[in-house]
Computed example of a mutant assay.
Amino acid sequence: MTDFEVPVLSVKNLNKQYGPGCLKCRGGESSSLVKNYCQVCGTVYACRNVSFDVFPGEVLGIVGESGSGKSTLMQCLYFDQEVTSGEAYVSDYENGEKNLFQESSQQQRYIRNHIMGKVYQNPLLGLRMNFSSIGNIAEKLIAAGNNHVGMMESRGTELLNKVHIPVHRRKEAPKNFSGGMQQRVQIAKALSNHPPLLLLDEVTTGLDLSVQASVLDLIKSLQRELGISIVLVSHDLGVIRMLADRTLVMLEGKVIEQGLTDQILEDPQQPYTQQLVHSLL
Rank of each mutant, 00 (worst) to 15 (best):
Y18H: 10
T204I: 02
V54F: 07
S154N: 14
D262H: 13
A190E: 00
H164A: 06
N15I: 11
N136W: 05
Q107S: 13
G227S: 10
E252H: 15
S221I: 08
C41L: 09
E58G: 11
A190D: 04
I62Q: 01
S234G: 09
S214W: 00
C47K: 03
Q274K: 15
V6D: 07
G28E: 05
V185A: 02
H164L: 04
M116T: 15
Q121I: 10
K70P: 06
P174D: 05
L232G: 04
G57Y: 08
L9A: 02
L77H: 07
T204P: 00
I111H: 01
S30A: 15
T204W: 03
L124C: 11
V54A: 13
Q274S: 11
T247G: 08
V215G: 00
E139R: 10
L281C: 10
E58H: 11
V163G: 01
D92F: 13
G69A: 10
D245F: 11
N122Q: 08
R169Q: 08
E103G: 08
Q17M: 14
E5L: 14
T204F: 03
I230H: 08
V203T: 14
G145C: 10
V233W: 00
S104V: 12
M1R: 13
A190P: 03
S66G: 03
E5N: 15
R241A: 15
F101A: 05
L226W: 12
V249P: 07
E5A: 14
R48P: 09
D201R: 02
S192D: 02
V211I: 07
K254I: 09
L198A: 10
V44D: 07
Q275H: 13
A144Q: 09
S221L: 11
V6R: 14
V233T: 01
N136S: 10
I137A: 08
Y37S: 12
P20L: 10
P166R: 00
I165T: 01
N122C: 05
Y93R: 08
L281A: 14
R224T: 13
V83E: 06
R170W: 12
Y120Q: 02
S210Q: 03
L125V: 07
H114R: 15
L209E: 08
G67V: 05
F177Q: 02
F4N: 15
F177C: 05
R128C: 13
N147Q: 14
D245G: 13
L218Y: 04
K16I: 07
R109N: 13
V119P: 04
E29A: 14
L199G: 05
L200S: 03
F52A: 07
E257S: 11
G206R: 04
L197E: 06
K24V: 10
L251C: 13
T157E: 07
L260P: 09
Q183L: 02
L141A: 11
L232V: 05
V167F: 12
V233F: 04
G259V: 08
N113M: 11
G253N: 07
L276G: 02
F177I: 02
V255G: 04
M151V: 14
R169P: 00
L276E: 00
Q121S: 12
G145Q: 08
G21V: 10
Q75E: 11
L198N: 05
P123N: 07
Y45A: 04
V6W: 05
I256W: 01
D245N: 15
P20M: 11
L276D: 00
Y18M: 09
I111W: 02
V8W: 06
P196F: 09
I187V: 12
S71C: 01
S51H: 12
S68V: 01
S132N: 04
L243Y: 03
